[in-house]
């Protein structure tokens, strides 16, 4: 296989009429990777934070997500419980084993049956904590990790995501800055999620709930 590797790289260099990138040029490329420049950022992603929160909500709703703003973190359990009631869903949750979620007063929603684990087939509703929200397109950012199994984002029919308003940023690039500031490198999976799953593969008509969740519900804390 290394034959293939060498041959491909050599053909590329022959086409570019040079050897391996070296010297000053290489240093420039290294610098570009070490300090990635931003390209064009849409103006709508550069507004002040309070406007970004509004924009996030609007864009998420335009993508067919539902958004429920609550004032305090302590309001989340009751809000989740009420959402399940309204939708006629069983009061059963599989929840990301995240300490921040665990710290919420779930006892205030005593009817909820909660399991903290990765999702399996048959789970109806999951709850995860978003790492960030991106106002530009109403996009949730979720990171895989011991506290946040990726299967929660895709297997259940209903996915509830708790998002702190102070984690809403304007542009995708702002989310990457947050991720780098975390200092742990890339997690195995970063999921950008914008609305519930859908497909238009039959006669170009959009239908919700293709393979992932049929519903995406955001509980926005402090919005």
């Amino acid at each position: 296989m290394s034959d293939a590797r060498e041959q491909i790289l050599n053909t590329l260099r022959r086409g570019l009429q040079r050897g391996p990138v070296a010297g000053e040029r290489r240093a420039e490329l290294e610098a570009r990777l070490a300090h990635p420049p931003r390209n064009v950022i849409p103006a709508r992603a550069l507004r002040p934070h309070f406007e970004q929160v509004d924009l996030f909500v609007q864009m998420a709703r335009n993508a067919a997500a539902t958004v429920d703003p609550v004032t305090h973190p302590a309001d989340v359990p009751v809000a989740v419980s009420a959402f399940l009631d309204c939708e006629g869903l069983p009061a059963e949750l599989v929840m990301a084993p995240d300490p921040e979620l665990a710290a919420l007063p779930w006892s205030e929603a005593p009817t909820l049956h909660i399991e903290r684990r990765a999702a399996v087939d048959g789970d109806q509703t999951s709850v995860s904590l978003a790492f960030a929200g991106i106002a530009e397109t109403g996009t949730l950012v979720l990171l895989s990790g011991p506290y946040s199994p990726t299967t929660l984002n895709f297997l259940p029919d209903t996915h509830i995501v708790v998002l702190r308003a102070d984690r809403i940023v304007g542009a995708y690039e702002d989310a990457w800055d947050l991720l780098r500031a975390r200092g742990l490198g890339m997690p195995r999976t970063v999921n950008f999620i914008t609305g519930p799953s859908r497909s238009a593969d039959i006669e170009q008509t959009v239908q919700m709930g293709a393979h992932g969740p049929l519903r995406l519900h955001v509980v926005l804390v402090g919005g």
Binding site: A63, R117, S144, P146, M186, R188, F192, T194
Partner: peptide, 30 residues
């Protein structure tokens, strides 16, 4: 404006992860 899912995958599942693939391969085709 964006698709529903944009997914960024880096390597196999980490030791402490609760799910994800054990192996991650990329095939680069010329």
């Amino acid at each position: 404006e964006i698709t529903v899912y944009t997914t960024f995958s880096s390597g196999p599942r980490r030791v402490e992860d609760l799910d994800g693939p054990e192996q991650f391969h990329v095939v680069l085709l010329d």
